[in-house]
Design a protein around this nucleic acid. Structure first.
Lengths: 198, 198
DNA sequence: AATTTATGTGACTATAGAGTCAATTAATTA
DNA sequence: TAATTAATTGACTCTATAGTCACATAAATT
């Protein structure tokens, strides 16, 4: 059934493959995921995958790069409307929550940077630093405009926020529509604080 | 060199093995870790490991169980001195920070519950629920005695706290002595909140 | 010293899964 | 309709590593 190149957009197939592969990598881990299973779910056989990626590692890289591109695309307009830091923070983590609950979206975040560094050289570190730096900017802005507390421990805050939000997929079921809502609740925990009011 | 059973405590060897195996499992992941490497680091050969665990999966289970026992041991006296909820919270996360930065200590937390459930039946879920429930109790107590804010979103708070603290080993280098200190900084982020004071 | 038991080794087998390749099919183009 | 090209397959190879087993060695026990 359906071989040959009959599909309108040729690149579309690669995206399908990335989507399925990313899901397998994220859910089962890189080593545990098998190309056999990925191919099966796509309705093709394993060797066909080698037309789209020269190796399992390269497939992983493509997943992560695609994932990162999505992140960039969704976050690049954060600063265009002139919101205050706190509002940008909310927007950022709404986007981040939805991204991290999506198999493709969270790919570059979840998959061990160690393995990716083996394959690729630089990008994993660079990508994570880019994400970190966006949050850092947001905090700076919030502190400057007074919408966030002035005395925040930035390093600890960044670590705590990403730690918490990266754990989202373990607390809500995958493909759940509640990613954004749960993300908002998480952020409230950080904004309000646990100390008794006043 | 040094075969036979000359050592004072016989169980000691199993503990050594667990320590090394746990480190490999945590740092490289279960599938990527090899029994060969573990045996090598212990100065023995792979088949010898099968005297202590019948399979790789069973070795994983022993690591996780041992890890959980350590957790229990260190947290069981949390409620004996009559501290307020906030103080107990601090003590809890000081212990937790050190635990989670130690390869053995974090074993049952870090390693995919999916794989563990395949081997074992019930325990992974039970263990995580036990940890969760301890924190839940601490929060309840703090809310009751007024040392923590009354209107906390418990589910979100628990998720955020564990998410943040579980990420500790990714932000400080392993075996670092600063686990407790960094843990304290993380907790401050949660206690103080990001909203501007008053 | 002889026996038993815990501990360990070298040399195997078995298997899963990655990667290769020549042959095949289908769409595109001429 | 013939030639070209993209996409796919079945049938391989190769390798890493888990697991087995008969045998060896050293300590403890008698």
């Amino acid at each position: 059934m359906g071989r040959g190149r009959g599909r309108p957009r040729i690149e579309k197939r690669l995206e399908d493959i990335i989507e399925v592969a990313a899901a397998h990598f994220c859910q089962r881990g890189f080593a545990e995921a098998t190309l056999e299973d990925i191919a099966l779910e796509l309705g093709m056989t394993r060797p066909a995958l080698y037309h789209y990626a020269a190796s399992k590692e390269e497939l992983l890289m493509k997943c992560c790069d695609w994932s990162f591109e999505q992140y960039i695309e969704k976050t690049q307009n954060l600063f265009v409307e002139k919101l205050n830091g706190k509002e940008i923070l909310k927007k950022f983590f709404l986007i981040y929550s939805e991204l991290v609950c999506d198999d493709v979206g969270r790919c570059f975040i979840s998959l061990s940077a160690r393995r990716r560094e083996a394959a690729n050289q630089a990008s994993p570190g660079k990508q994570m630093r880019a994400v970190n730096s966006t949050l850092s900017q947001i905090l700076d802005q919030g502190i400057a405009d007074g919408s966030l507390a002035g005395c925040v421990d930035k390093k600890a805050t960044i670590a705590a926020l990403f730690g918490a939000f990266n754990s989202l997929p373990t607390i809500i079921k995958p493909k759940s529509k509640s990613a954004g809502a749960m993300g908002a609740r998480l952020l409230s925990v950080f904004l309000d604080g646990l100390a008794p009011g006043q």
